[in-house]
Design a binder for these strands. Sequence first.
RNA 1: GGAGGAAUGGCAGAGUGGUCGAAUGCGGCGGUCUUGAAAACCGUUGACCGCUUACCGGCGGUCCGGGGGUUCGAAUCCCUCUUCCUCCGCCA
Length: 427
Amino acid sequence: MLTLKTIQEHPEEVIRKLQIKQFDAAGLVEQILSLDRERRELQAGNDLMQSELNRLSKSIGEYIRSGKNEEAEKAREETTRLKEQIKNRQKRHGEVEEELRNLLTELPNLPHDSVPPGKGSEDNVVVREGGHLPEKTDGLLPHWELGRRFGILDFELGNKLTGAGFPVFIGKGARLQRALIHFFLDEAIKAGYVEYLPPLMVNEDSAFATGQLPDKEGQMYALVQDRFYLIPTAEVPVTNFYRDMILDAEKLPVKNTAYTPCFRREAGSYGKDVRGLNRVHQFDKVEIVRIEHPDRSYEALEEMVHHVEELVKQLALPYRIVRLCGGDMSFTSALTYDFEVFAAAQQKWLEVSSVSNFESFQANRLKLRLRDPGFKKPILAHTLNGSALALPRIVAALLENNQKPDAIIIPEVLIPYTGFDRIELPG
RNA sequence: GGAGGAAUGGCAGAGUGGUCGAAUGCGGCGGUCUUGAAAACCGUUGACCGCUUACCGGCGGUCCGGGGGUUCGAAUCCCUCUUCCUCCGCCA
């Protein structure tokens, strides 16, 4: 959520910057500004009347204590009239405030100056590539075939238990999952992140604060009876730790990491790139989350990109880093880098990580602030997060890229975690 | 699941209808003293909204777990939800 102050002080800049995100904000901005004027007017009037009422109430007390019952009765009558007025105006004030809040939550975050213009993924800018693309790809099997052949991954079984998009990992396949999670967490801890194991369900307040509600409600699995939501990413619980908090600026940065399963309905995304592990409803992910001082959040973003890059490098996967264009960015992000790895059999780039700086957009909803001696009042913190990493597509690429006719070779860095260096055909 | 108790400022903890944003202690910040520090003493110490102001600031409003109610007036009374504690039952 943008702050009202930003909109009041730079309305034309807000409109111009949101154009880069392919968002026409002119109408909304105007509505917000006029509604805010109304809100302030109402409040000024209400405060005045409330002040008068408080004064009268006090005087009644004094009259009664000094035995002036007649005066007390007179003042009492006056308050009845005043109270009626206040009640009506307060109702309107409340409505205006709610409406204002609703409108504010409709505005996306402003893109950073370095965000390239563009409409969709074709306009994203590749900032760096690494690893080696496979030389020959003839005859390579896609990972869903490999999963079946090697007996490590079963989609039909998941279908039977739950439905499409809930794969079951078996034997060395399951072990590989666990190894990857362990490896990713160890690397994050080495880089100074504190590990958390949070709840996998959150309440409405949490879902609202990180922006899943109200817009992306349809993307989450809801537990209707208890009004909980299954988390679509660890970002939700781990960022919500800091809801309604004022942190000491000196105690920054906050660097947290968490492994969680993630649950996504993926409504409306059927039909394209959904085969196998490319898009599933439940998957494992290690997330990194940071809370930073506004002065150094972009420095932090670069550190996070570097961290994720080291992970894909160590896994020896061909990768590229793209800076998302305005039209392809998320609602809440100011700047996002996506990581893609190349899956040799599908001959496709698969997104495995998204690293973003939300600046103060998320902090404003969270009411996450910093006490900085340089400022009289608490200032909004900056929040960032990134996947480090999401498992299914990493597994897809590992299987496809490391396949031999009779085995799948495990990357060296994972062997201490898996306890084996290859997955062989079942006997 | 049953019975009882509780939720107050960064923390501890007083306050059971009016002058209470709230005693007191601790912590934090500033000062006196000191070569420096500690101790002691003095002062100060929340968030949000609005009006005002060149700035310092000033004025008004809201906030005592959340929501609703009673009352001229609520931290205090009533209803409701949430969380925590004690006891009993059940259970991994």
